[in-house]
Design a binder for these strands. Structure first.
Lengths: 157, 157
DNA sequence: CACCTTGCTGCAAGGGGTTGCAAGATAGGC
DNA sequence: GCCTATCTTGCAACCCCTTGCAGCAAGGTG
């Protein structure tokens, strides 16, 4: 009841050591991205990250960001999924495993908790031995409010 | 017990009339793509379609194919989804609504029948009023055989 | 059959994302 | 503090896909 769980910041501070242990290097570019990520919550697209990094350092190049994100994913610090248009989205420090719900009319996105998907995940595991990677799942459809207002499918899907 | 259901071909033959009715035109480029689609089963990527069309007509351009596919989707003759890499995949003549299961290790894809997803679809509808568009869903994970052989996540995700 | 309206095509350019490679920088050893 | 092995970066090029636009052609009309 006394000590709160260690703040996420600690995990980011430890990134440098995580890299060192593996013989990887701590470069200004990586530091910039890690700092941006530490300030980000929830979901960010790769393009957003590139833009934010360019504010901190205008010389930022996209390929470096993509490669660094890939590396951070291997360390388990971020997790990427594909949004409705197939664009990459990153979840920072994915503590709870979750998927996404996306409305194809209004474009909003919600998190899909593991408990909600439990049925499907369990069924696929039992019936096919298939292990679902929830963080990679985006369920597309129409949200309650768009259904209610009887909005039709927009141009983009 | 006598008459089999009308072959899919009939639907393709009718495309021309479908277009006429809407004041749209029946062009050689559209005819080529429709012929290719009539010969295709299951899932095809956009790139595959472009390649096949170029065999029939080397002057085929990608933008025309993408625009024609979009049009055919509005007519309900194809349906597109996003594969694991975010690339577009098309289902031809989607009679049964289904999603996809994709193994991130071996890259294989299976169909996810509506019955299997019923639980999730129903739960989301009850809890959130969210109507799932199954054809747009790709569930990523590891298939039984890859789990069994203890294969680790490959480079690509 | 020639004409005209309007939908369609092809091009070129741009955006998101990936990759090969040569040049550059980290960090360990001396 | 310098040197070097090797990991990273930045560049350029490429792939998939989308879009604006000018010119073309389908197909209805007289």
């Amino acid at each position: 009841m006394i000590a709160p769980p260690p703040p996420a910041l600690d995990q980011w501070a430890a990134v440098r050591d995580l890299l060192h242990v593996r013989g990887m290097r701590w470069t200004p570019q990586r530091r910039t991205l890690v700092e941006i990520l530490a300030k980000s919550d929830g979901h960010v697209t790769a393009v957003e990250l590139i833009e934010r990094c360019r504010i901190a350092d205008p010389t930022t190049t996209a390929s470096t960001i993509y490669r660094t994100l890939e590396m951070l994913e291997e360390l388990g610090l971020v997790r990427h999924g594909h949004g409705p248009e197939g664009r990459q989205e990153f979840h920072v420090l994915p503590d709870r495993d979750h998927g996404h719900l996306h409305c194809e009319i209004c474009g909003q996105t919600w998190e899909l908790e593991a408990t909600e998907a439990k049925g499907l995940v369990g069924a696929l595991r039992r019936a096919r031995g298939f292990r679902v990677d929830l963080s990679h799942v985006t369920i597309v459809g129409r949200c309650a409010s768009c259904v209610e207002h009887n909005l039709e499918r927009a141009s983009t899907t």
